[in-house]
Computed example of a mutant assay.
Amino acid sequence: MLVLLARDGRHPLGVGGVAREVHELYFHWFGVLAEGGFPLDDPLWQYPPAAGPVLLSPALLPGLSYFQGFVALALLADAAVAVALARAGRRPGRSLAGAALWVGGLPLLLHIPLARYDVQVTALAVLALLCVARRPRAAGVLAALGALVKVWPALALLGTPRGRSTRASWGSALAAAAALLVVLAAAFENPFAFLRQQGGRGVQIESVGGTALAFARLAGQPLHVEYRFGAVEFTGPYVTAVAHASLFATVLGGAALVLWRLRARRWTEATPFDAALCGVLVLTVTSRVISPQYLIWLLGLAAVCLSSRATSQRPAAALVTAAAAVSTLGYPLLYEDVMASTWTGTLVLFVRNVLLVAAVLLSWRGLWRSTVSARPPLGPTASTKPPQSDNSS
């Protein structure tokens, strides 16, 4: 991954420019944040306020440039996830398959993970999930920190067992989030500037809705692409309808997750892991935007699921891994074809998005069957009563 990062922009790495986001955009934001304020009226700033300290953190490493410090911290976060999964995998009833998936799966995304701060965010979510069973308050704090950087880590608490664990983790998450917001509001100006930029986002060409628009463009519809809000988006007919459909699908997906939470009756050690992966898959597939770095989140959560032998998410994890491999064909290798909506670029994204849709369906089915519709297995974990003999036999 480091070698590819050094060769960014050269053949055969497609359009290149993967590292440009750190060199230019992140470094620009670093300068604004260092002056004590969040970017104001910047359409590219769409992140919660705790993203500020993450983008400032490379300056804490002496003797390194901003880019070198950023990559070093991404590598440290990568190592932290691998070590945490390996340690968790050695416990009784656990598996090292999760650590293997993370170590072997992340390079499928080439050098993208080292040039985005999603590895750091994923590390917070992974650590939160691994803490749920034994340290629910610590899990809540870690999930809150992640949520204030990129929102989605809040779903790490979706599947916490009812009762003390849920009260402890959710309560500590709310307290930590409130405390951190107070600190950030006192330290920086305009901490909620990001909220202004969310409503205007359109349909990114790599999203599920974007794939439908790409086929429409191939069929002759007057659709065009334009760089807006930090992503290449479609403009033209049907775009607004697809954007509204995506938002409606997100609402339906959220309602389905709430329904699951209300109906779930059986918890295993893997249920919090499985619920987190399912929740983030729903959020990703229904989104108007599916950036390549979103696969980092899914790989991390799939790895946590595979760290438990009780998981119901093995099929979904396999599809997520396959989607990560295909995703790098879409960006950066064949991104020019994707932007031009050629048959090659469109079919690559179609395959990637079909894999993600199939993953969310299998993930939901596994989660529902393992917690709602499935009968508890016979054994000491299912009942404290000994089995009665059948006298008629």
Results as ranks from 00 to 15, higher is better:
R7E: 08
G16Y: 08
H28M: 13
F30Q: 11
A34G: 11
P39H: 05
D42T: 10
P43I: 11
G52K: 08
G63P: 11
V71F: 15
L76P: 00
A79S: 02
A79H: 02
A84N: 11
P92G: 13
P92T: 07
A100D: 01
L101G: 04
V103L: 05
G105P: 03
P107H: 14
P107S: 13
L108C: 11
L110I: 10
A115K: 01
Y117P: 03
V121A: 13
A125G: 10
R134C: 03
R137N: 02
A144R: 08
L148F: 12
P153F: 07
L158Q: 13
T160S: 13
G163A: 06
T166K: 03
G171L: 07
L180Y: 06
L184A: 01
A187K: 02
R196V: 00
G202F: 00
V203R: 11
T211P: 00
F215E: 03
A216K: 03
Y227N: 12
R228E: 12
F229Y: 14
Y238N: 13
Y238P: 00
A241P: 01
T250M: 12
W260Y: 07
R261E: 05
A264D: 04
A264G: 06
W267S: 13
A270M: 02
P272C: 03
F273K: 03
F273I: 00
D274Q: 07
L277E: 09
R288P: 02
V289D: 10
P292G: 08
I296H: 11
L301P: 11
S308K: 06
T311S: 10
P315R: 15
A316V: 01
L319R: 07
T321M: 06
A324I: 14
A324G: 15
L334F: 15
Y335G: 06
W343P: 10
L349T: 02
S370C: 01
P377W: 00
P380C: 06
T384Y: 08
Q388M: 09
